[in-house]
Amino acid sequence: MSKHVTTASFQSDVLSSSKPVLVDFWAEWCGPCRMVSPILDEISAEHGDKLTIVKVNVDEEPALAQQYGITSIPALHVFKDGQVIKQIIGAKPKPSLLADLSEFIN
C-alpha cells in the first residue's frame, strides 16, 4: 500500500524528496481510481527504488487538489525537485503507465 500524504506532510514527503515522487490524487467514490490503485501498488513494488508512489485523498485534502489544479481523477502527478514534471490523467492499463513512466523507472 502506498503512503497517504497530507497537506502537513506534503513538503517532506513530496517536495523535498531526493527521488521522483508520483502523487496519485484519488477519492473513494471514483471507480477508475479504485481500479488503478492496485496497478500503482504493483509498480511501486517493482520500481520503488527509483520512483516513490504516494496517495492524496482529495476528499480529505481539498486544498492540495486545488493547489495543483486537479479537476479530473485519477490524476497522477510526478514531482521532481518540488516541481510537477509529468501529469497523467485517467486510469490506464499497466503497460501504458509503465510506458508513460519509463523516463523515471528505467
Binding site: W29, C30, G31, P32, C33, D59, T71, S72
Partner: peptide, 8 residues
C-alpha cells in the same frame, strides 16, 4: 465522468 469529476 461526472461521478469522478463533479466534486471539483
Amino acid at each position: 465522468c461526472a461521478t469522478c469529476d463533479g466534486f471539483f
